[in-house]
Simulated scan of single mutants.
Amino acid sequence: MSNAKKVVFIGWHPDAIDFSKIPNLTAEKLIAQLEKDRQQLNELGYDAEILFIHSPQTAYDTVVDAMKQTPYDCVLIGAGVRLPEPHFLVFEKVVNAVHEYAPQAKICFNTNPMDTAESVQRWV
């Protein structure tokens, strides 16, 4: 059994993102960066995984299901979930799902896909 701290970062699935509104970012670049972040966290000794949300309608249930299945030590909610104003209600749902179903987890936030490890390390 591993003693590594369990970390999950929550973000939009690339199929749910309108990349025309995000200069210099594509689905391929996003996935590559997320995998790089996951690998970096694992190399730092964490047990990290990615949780994609697919729609505003299913975001809450997706997060609740994940929180019920795994006792995470840290949950990172990505900038794409919290920053664009149209996603504010999804962000609110995600925070409440984490708060209710993973009360032991620290919650952290990145500012872009490149500072995920630093965001996690602030709290875990």
Rank of each mutant, 00 (worst) to 15 (best):
Met1Ile: 12
Met1Phe: 13
Met1Gln: 12
Ser2Phe: 10
Ala4Trp: 00
Lys6Glu: 11
Val7His: 01
Val8Ile: 15
Phe9Ile: 15
His13Gln: 14
Pro14Asn: 04
Asp15Ala: 14
Asp15Tyr: 11
Asp18Ala: 08
Asp18His: 13
Phe19Trp: 11
Lys21Trp: 13
Asn24Ala: 11
Asn24Trp: 01
Leu25Glu: 01
Thr26Asn: 11
Thr26Lys: 03
Ala27Tyr: 03
Ala27Gly: 15
Glu28Ser: 09
Lys29Trp: 02
Leu30Asn: 05
Ile31Pro: 11
Leu34Lys: 09
Leu34Cys: 12
Leu34Gly: 12
Glu35Ser: 11
Lys36Leu: 05
Asp37Gly: 15
Asp37Phe: 09
Asp37Asn: 15
Asp37Ile: 03
Asp37Arg: 05
Arg38Lys: 15
Gln39Ala: 12
Gln40His: 13
Leu41Arg: 09
Leu41Ser: 09
Asn42Leu: 13
Asn42Asp: 14
Glu43Leu: 13
Glu43Gln: 13
Glu43Lys: 11
Glu43Cys: 08
Leu44Gly: 05
Leu44Ser: 11
Leu44Phe: 10
Leu44Ile: 10
Gly45Glu: 08
Tyr46Val: 00
Asp47Thr: 02
Asp47Arg: 06
Glu49Thr: 09
Glu49Gly: 01
Glu49Gln: 14
Leu51Met: 07
Ile53Phe: 12
His54Arg: 14
His54Glu: 14
Ser55Glu: 00
Ser55Leu: 05
Pro56Lys: 03
Pro56Trp: 06
Gln57Glu: 15
Thr58Lys: 14
Ala59Trp: 01
Asp61Gly: 09
Thr62Phe: 04
Val63Pro: 04
Val63Gln: 05
Val63Trp: 00
Val64Tyr: 03
Val64Gly: 06
Asp65Met: 08
Asp65Cys: 05
Asp65His: 06
Asp65Tyr: 06
Ala66Met: 03
Ala66Tyr: 02
Lys68His: 08
Lys68Val: 07
Gln69Thr: 07
Thr70Ala: 04
Thr70Tyr: 08
Tyr72Ser: 10
Tyr72Lys: 03
Asp73Lys: 10
Asp73Pro: 08
Asp73Gln: 11
Cys74Asn: 10
Val75Thr: 06
Leu76Val: 15
Leu76Gln: 09
Leu76Met: 05
Ile77Gly: 02
Ile77Asn: 03
Gly78Asp: 14
Gly78Pro: 11
Ala79His: 08
Gly80Arg: 01
Val81His: 09
Pro84Tyr: 07
Glu85Val: 15
Glu85Ile: 12
Pro86Trp: 02
His87Cys: 09
Phe88Ala: 08
Leu89Glu: 14
Val90Leu: 07
Val90Ile: 07
Val90Arg: 06
Phe91Pro: 00
Glu92Pro: 07
Lys93Pro: 06
Lys93Cys: 13
Lys93Trp: 06
Val94Leu: 03
Val94Arg: 08
Val95Ile: 15
Asn96Gln: 13
Ala97Glu: 02
Ala97Pro: 03
Val98Pro: 04
Val98Tyr: 02
His99Ser: 12
His99Asn: 11
His99Ile: 10
Glu100Met: 13
Ala102Ile: 06
Pro103Glu: 15
Gln104Asn: 14
Ala105Phe: 01
Ala105Glu: 00
Ile107Glu: 11
Cys108Lys: 08
Phe109Glu: 02
Asn110Cys: 00
Thr111Trp: 05
Thr111Ser: 15
Pro113Met: 09
Asp115Ser: 03
Asp115Ala: 03
Asp115Gly: 03
Ala117Leu: 07
Ser119Phe: 03
Ser119Lys: 07
Gln121Ile: 07
Arg122Glu: 12
Arg122Asn: 07
